[in-house]
Computed example of a mutant assay.
Amino acid sequence: MTNSERMKMAAGEWYTCLDTELEDLRVRARDAVFEHNSLPPRQRGNMGPALRALLGGSGEGARIEAPFHCAYGFNLFLGDGTFLNAGCTILDTAPVRIGKRTLLGPNVQIYCAEHHREASGRQAGLEVARPVTIGDHAWIGGSAVILAGVSIGEGAIVGAGAVVTRDVAANTTVVGNPARAVMRR
């Protein structure tokens, strides 16, 4: 018996993103994101209702500024008081867990998908999903990019524009491309 592409994605196996079930789920997410991004700020509040319903979890006081984009939404989990500034993009093919009171600056990007290394695999839509975890009280600077499979520890700081390719220890500041530690508190 063959697993569905969604099941393969959830299991961290190679799957094809060209699957119709996955496309239907992405359309559902785009609809929720469109509502969130289109609502007047006072009507939207911290998060549009369709987006809040779509997310895997959203703690008390979690806020997402518009515009925002996510691939699926159901793999995104926000802690209490988490703040995502305008322009954030989260391609949540795997679980993305963002801890409480963590701040993401404008245009932060989180990518859980890794595409196939062979051109033929990429043309077939093959990718593998790796989770991303960001601990409590972290600060991710504007335009930082966090790649698949990365964990960022509690209280860590990622400098603006950094490209995070490896885990970041708790209470460590990283900067650059690729991100490297410059300070541990």
Rank of each mutant, 00 (worst) to 15 (best):
V128H: 04
S151Q: 12
G135W: 00
E154V: 06
V163Q: 10
G155P: 04
G161L: 06
D136N: 15
R122Y: 03
R130Q: 13
D136T: 04
A170Q: 02
A170P: 06
G149V: 00
A148G: 11
A162F: 10
E114I: 09
T133I: 09
Y111F: 15
Q123D: 15
P131G: 12
G153R: 07
D167P: 05
G121K: 07
L104E: 00
E127F: 00
L126C: 05
I134A: 07
A129M: 08
S120W: 09
G142N: 06
D167C: 11
A144R: 06
V150Q: 00
V132T: 08
E118I: 05
I110E: 02
I157H: 02
S120M: 10
A129K: 13
A160T: 11
C112K: 06
H116K: 07
A124H: 12
G105A: 12
W139L: 09
E118D: 15
A160N: 00
A170F: 03
D136R: 10
G161F: 07
H115E: 04
A113R: 10
A170I: 01
V145P: 01
A138K: 02
A124K: 15
G141C: 07
A144V: 05
D136I: 03
V163K: 12
S151Y: 01
A138S: 06
P106K: 01
S143H: 14
G141F: 09
A138G: 02
C112Q: 08
T165S: 11
A129E: 13
R117M: 13
